[in-house]
Design a protein around this nucleic acid. Sequence first.
DNA 1: TTAGCAACGTTATAATATAACGTTTGTTAA
DNA 2: TTAACAAACGTTATATTATAACGTTGCTAA
Lengths: 166, 166
Amino acid sequence: MVCPKQFSFQSDNHDHQRCIRNAMAVAEKLCRRRQQRFTPLRRRVLQLIWQQQRPVGAYDLLKQLQQDGKAAPITVYRVLDFLLRMGLVHRILSQNAYIGCVCPEREHAGHFLICQTCKGLVEVVDSALTAAIVANSLALDFQVRQSAVEILGLCPRCAKEVSSEG
Amino acid sequence: MVCPKQFSFQSDNHDHQRCIRNAMAVAEKLCRRRQQRFTPLRRRVLQLIWQQQRPVGAYDLLKQLQQDGKAAPITVYRVLDFLLRMGLVHRILSQNAYIGCVCPEREHAGHFLICQTCKGLVEVVDSALTAAIVANSLALDFQVRQSAVEILGLCPRCAKEVSSEG
DNA sequence: TTAGCAACGTTATAATATAACGTTTGTTAA
DNA sequence: TTAACAAACGTTATATTATAACGTTGCTAA
């Protein structure tokens, strides 16, 4: 089970609490298997990230952590670093923000469609895109370690609003 | 004529001064055609960007400008904003840096291979990659405005060095 | 049960980017 | 020409994002 919101711009009224619970369970299992500590702090931050349905900034997370008590930026960044290493979240370069990964079990690059209006985001998993990246890299004798694809534009809903206004 | 360095990791001893002169001439023509002012400051910054053969940070540019006289960060960012709007430079998200565009006449997204060791960069122009992006967007009824593809890894030269060390 | 290391706290600071407002300069149209 | 306007640039201040350095706590494994 994955969060449908993160695979399509359309699906909206799904039980996101269930997605969150699922993501936490997957994270737990994955950390245990890798013998990494899924501490309360790490759990809390991952949960905060999943609660938003769009990419969240580090300082947004910080503010939320500070509602529980004192916290410093480095705390957030350290946790983010861990979550990124574990593949539990993706970093969205164009937004300086972070989002929960829908499929942390399988290692993969983050490929995204991002709406410039509502900041909504969809993770793309597509073999043709991956193949094109591999082909280009092979052609230049380049060893891929990581790839970031961020496609910016207008999601269907925001496009509709724009056209009905104008 | 384009800078071969920006299309391959291999070509190294080409006449880069000539590439720079060419880039400046193209920029000049393009601004005139669009009735935009290619001021001395804008010219200077674009030249500084082309002089590096890798992505340059805004504050690197600032330091170089300050050798001519006083300058503030906003000055650099304003010029970068102009150059980006004109398509004369690309912003490299993963590096917080900027690089001259090898083909500003034709509007296009920036697709790059970036070496994590030497920070060398190659601009990729590939229809299969573009097609994959378009296909994904169409499938989700998403209107693309801009796309950023940054493929990080090891360029052939750095790969060779790593293997000869280890 | 203690040595060692990972996690986290605390304080400070680096690096990147923008806001607000005033002045200069170039362009346009009477 | 020159007044009116807008674009470019200067100046000062500040926002936003991210990391460094070092000490303390607490888990874990021999």
